[in-house]
Nucleic acid binder design. Structure first.
Length: 273
DNA sequence: GATAATGTTCGATC
DNA sequence: AGATCGAACATTAT
């Protein structure tokens, strides 16, 4: 579920709630979400203090004072929740007990998410990060989007989802960005004019920052690091609105759903060309 | 019971 | 070499 705005929302919550706090013990309820053995995780984290919380694309990095970092990818249904000692949740897979009370819980209904240990100074070299392009919120990311788009004829929607081009955009925001930029999702990336490319650049930045301001999109599963839903769902212009009226002022179009690479794309054929 | 779901990865095939 | 596609992973809600 989580794309860049959701992961950034969680990052901010964890930074605020966990920085400087120490992990007392770790309980693993589902070892398959770990890339290392449960015992290595427990040994490495017992007594470790959180020294920083970073994000690259959809990947979260918890830095500890031990020169090790925990790399977390939430995939489809992962959640990270800072909570008190009570309230057991149904899909909790890993619990990090904090030395001063309370805990950080990793919950994941489908258990597709992954937690992985990396050395902090080599975080960028870990295989989970090495294949990622620059973060979609950075100038370098937006620059790279335009450069790669001009060279490839893959549909522009598919390019936006390609994490090796730029990291962070997922299926919801790809549709939203193309709607704001007024571009049809099946347009070959290298067919975009320079004015269309700058519209794409502006739309990417605007959609992501607006979604972060609203603390992410909750359709079903997403919760912030403190357990609240995000508020951006009510501002979605196309995603999940198949058959409904286009919201663009003066546009009489109807929102369509179309499959691209086995994933739904929502768009308005009237105002997106 | 079939279908779809905010994601990535692997292997096969151009 | 690079691009592209389908299947796989695991589980729930409709």
């Amino acid at each position: 579920m989580p794309e860049l705005p959701e992961v950034e929302t969680i990052r901010r919550d964890l930074e605020r709630c966990l920085l400087g706090r120490t992990i007392a013990s770790v309980r693993v309820l589902r070892a398959s979400v770990l890339q290392c053995s449960p015992r290595r995780l427990k040994r490495a984290l017992a007594g470790a203090t959180v020294a920083g919380v970073r994000r690259h694309g959809k990947v979260l990095l918890l830095d500890f004072d031990t020169d090790q970092s925990l790399l977390i990818h939430l995939r489809m249904t992962g959640q990270l929740l800072v909570c008190g000692d009570s309230a057991e949740r149904r899909f909790t897979r890993v619990i990090f007990h904090l030395a001063d009370g309370g805990r950080l819980a990793y919950a994941d209904c489908r258990a597709l998410g992954r937690l992985e240990f990396v050395r902090s100074d080599r975080a960028g070299a870990s295989n989970s990060l090495a294949n990622l392009g620059p973060d979609a919120l950075t100038e370098a990311g937006l620059d790279r989007l335009l450069v790669v788009a001009s060279r490839r004829r893959t549909p522009i929607k598919c390019l936006l989802l390609d994490q090796s081009v730029l990291a962070g955009i997922g299926n919801i925001y790809a549709s939203e960005i193309l709607n704001l930029a007024r571009l049809a999702p099946d347009r070959p990336a290298n067919s975009l004019s320079s004015s269309e490319l700058s519209a794409l650049r502006r739309a990417t930045h605007r959609v992501l920052t607006a979604a972060i301001d609203a603390r992410g999109t909750t359709l079903r599963d997403f919760r912030t690091g403190t357990g609240e839903p995000g508020r951006y769902a009510s501002r979605l212009r196309v995603y999940g609105r198949e058959g409904k009226r286009c919201l663009r002022r003066g546009c009489r179009g109807t929102i369509l759903r179309q499959l691209q690479r086995q994933r739904s794309t929502f768009w308005c054929a009237e105002c997106q060309r």
